[in-house]
Write a protein that binds this DNA or RNA. Sequence first.
DNA 1: CTCTTTATCGTCAGTACGACGATAAGCGGT
DNA 2: ACCGCTTATCGTCGTACTGACGATAAAGAG
Lengths: 223, 223
Amino acid sequence: MPVSMTVDLVIFTIREQRLAVLLVRRGIPPYQGRWALPGGFVEDREDLEAAARRELAEETGVHAGSVHLEQLRTYGRPGRDPRGRVVTVAHLALAPDLPAPTAGSDAAHAAWIPVDEALGSKLAFDHHEILADGLERARSKLEYSPLGTAFCPATFTVNELRRVYEAVWGHEIDPRNFHRKVTRSTGFLVDTGERTNRDGGRPARLFRRGDVHLLHPPLLRGE
Amino acid sequence: MPVSMTVDLVIFTIREQRLAVLLVRRGIPPYQGRWALPGGFVEDREDLEAAARRELAEETGVHAGSVHLEQLRTYGRPGRDPRGRVVTVAHLALAPDLPAPTAGSDAAHAAWIPVDEALGSKLAFDHHEILADGLERARSKLEYSPLGTAFCPATFTVNELRRVYEAVWGHEIDPRNFHRKVTRSTGFLVDTGERTNRDGGRPARLFRRGDVHLLHPPLLRGE
DNA sequence: CTCTTTATCGTCAGTACGACGATAAGCGGT
DNA sequence: ACCGCTTATCGTCGTACTGACGATAAAGAG
């Protein structure tokens, strides 16, 4: 009946136009040398989300609330950890491209891995299942919530936002239809009035995140 | 670090055209005499979903897989249980109107309570929050999944299904538009060929659940 | 200047929506 | 047999969104 509680983190970001997940290389058994999701034990008198945010800060160096964090699912199958009964509350985090891959603690053991690569390799514990669940959650969240902007810096262009969606959904999107949908969706984007041409061609408007929490209508992934 | 693990259940059904939740009256402190969600401790070497299904069977007498069950969310705020550190994995169950309110164990202490009543009263622990989360999950699930049929018997009419949606969403739906949407949605309903006039007027077709897991397009709750 | 790139706006046919009219097919009462 | 009453089922509007794709705008590169 008494169990050990951990939190595990599926932290996504976009690096080089690809969706990447933060993984750590395990230094000790079990699963020594295997890639695993970052995580750790919940401390005494610590809330679950607080524990997740602490681990997030330890691994990425991000302390602010600038990173979206939500509970994903809880995994407690007996035998999922050979050391004993360990129940883990998995969380999903969406972060903009962070300056240093791993700024906080010992950096060498952590890395951003493209998700398709991560899903193609053997991960520790049941982390393959957790990662797959996190990916599916992220994909569906982008449909009906404005969280695609969580991958972008404070101001961004429609082009940059579209590349986020393409990276997460794994297929190309028509730039003209995408532009129409996101700019018409009231509350999704706020025009800053500024422009940039860092993407190459004609200068593009710079937007900030809006204040809605639900998209009306949703941006459905076709195909 | 070692915590006690419980599962709690938000079990919804439709009784007399209203959405109702199964609650139990607590016989012992803490919160003695208060209504609470059914639940209990996870046993050694027991999976979380198995524990939820066991509690579900104990409270409702339903052993079959005829009841939809899914994990809702995990609640672990320190202090949520005055007895110590107790983390609960809440589950959501959707059941058709069951023959006896509580068939399994001691029956007198459990009852189906209309959700608006339950949300208006003081519940034990953080069960008010859990119930509210479960209600929101159920409402959104009905939009994009065919789980409204989980509240219906094996065969049912469009009218009966519509009353499920009305009970869960809390507002009336145009019968003609609803009829068009659910019958056109491929894979949602299967026509049995039989008819019934148990609803009063012209005999209605009897349908079975289809085999899709996602509705295309979704049934959005307007208003 | 022209070519290339990206940004932005429009057009078009197909599909879904909510509001609501119309008809069908049972029932009970007269 | 006929009349209301109820529910079932189908159809018809105008509006809104969709994906496919044409057209134009505005920058830099050569």
